[in-house]
Design a protein around this nucleic acid. Sequence first.
RNA 1: GCGAGCGUAGCCAAGUGGCUAAGGCAGUGGAUUGUGGUUCCACCAUUCGCGGGUUCGAUUCCCGUCGUUCGCCCCA
Length: 428
Amino acid sequence: MSLIQAVRGTRDILPGESSDWQRVEAAARTLLARAGYQEIRTPLFEQTDLFERGIGEATDIVGKEMYSFQDRGERWITLRPEGTAGVVRAFLEHKLYTQGGIQRLWYTGPMFRYERPQAGRQRQFHQLGVEVLGSADPRADAEVIAIASDLLKTLGLSRWKLDLNSVGDLEDRQRYREKLVAYFTPYVAELDRDSQERLHRNPLRILDSKDPRTQAIAQEAPSILDYLGADSQRHFEQVQQYLSNLSIPYQLNPRLVRGLDYYTHTAFEMQVDDLGAQATVCGGGRYDRLVQELGGPDTPAIGWAIGLERLILLLQQLHLPLLATIDFYLVAKGTNAEAQALTLSHGLRQAGFAVELDLSGSAFGKQLKRADRSGAPACLIMGDAEAEAKTVQLKWLASGEQQAVAQSDLLHQTEALQQRLAALREKR
RNA sequence: GCGAGCGUAGCCAAGUGGCUAAGGCAGUGGAUUGUGGUUCCACCAUUCGCGGGUUCGAUUCCCGUCGUUCGCCCCA
């Protein structure tokens, strides 16, 4: 009989790895709370229409990567391929815009795209994202980029670069698109096949083709930055000024085009060298038209999403030490001792200690060995003699120092112990 | 969706058309029946992802399939 395995492109996050995830999530929560962002949790699936209208029917995500199906009520359902559409849907459905001012939101959770799996690219993957709804101010652009930058820094990542571009507003893009088509048309025969197809469907995407010949041709193509209207130009310049004020290094990349139709003005990506073709760790931009297109009031917005698998892959490459460990490993042998150890472990936890109780009942030597491996700074040893005397042996594993302690002292005079544990933790 | 590589224990692996499939780490038991980090001993794959084929004989060669990795595509 063959074992059932996880579906292609999905994976389990096992105990050895979940602490990495928790670190990222905790760091993000702290930073986002400080910046006044509130969490929003939306469903994992939505009506298929939401994504078709929101992301754009011509995009690859909608065209060939969505998990769509009909439910038993014959509704067309899609597992969310990204987070923004659902957030905007909720924003409209609950009329959050009537609360006035600006909504600063964040979310995290699984997303689903039917793609060929690779390291850093799965069919069920996780994103953490922010959305600022209701501000057209370039300071909002800079704020969200700064938060992403801070998050990476907090986690110890330093080797990334920020690519920045503006794709202008609708009119700018229309004008530019015409110029671009006019530029590429004489070269049609020399372009790679994909780019030939994109010439009329989505000519901006030709710019980031990896085909060397196409790239050579695209090198001389007109730049979007020369076709920005006065307002777009001004917005983009201010974003750059603010980023400089915040000492966030960036580089202009006029060929940066994001794959979702809803982007306007600012577009950016944070990339690293260590993830092969999955170099983009964070991507985002402004989407001033999306809320309106989904039937809401004219609401400018900006956001980004971080790919958590990619981020955690990077953290793991850094071999950052893990800090989470227990305070005491509790060893017991003998009928009375084992019974009392259970009670003691319970009491210690109520007193605020992290305790692991050895359940094996094997020889003290074996249990001590496990205590050592557990990473706990100290070990508590209880045999029937200790059980009789209502004491326990407290052994500090690094020094070997050991003494008998009354159980009641352990439970009620916790101050000194906590301080000593904290001091040991500090050293590691 | 296209092209290519890989798949031997929980992990890292050596291996070959033919006698019981190296080794290391981890794990379990013991030396040490109440004291760990060192050491020593023993145990730990009727089987080489799965299915089929070729062969006297396949973990090894072939086909298919599943998974994974790299590139393209796409994107976070």
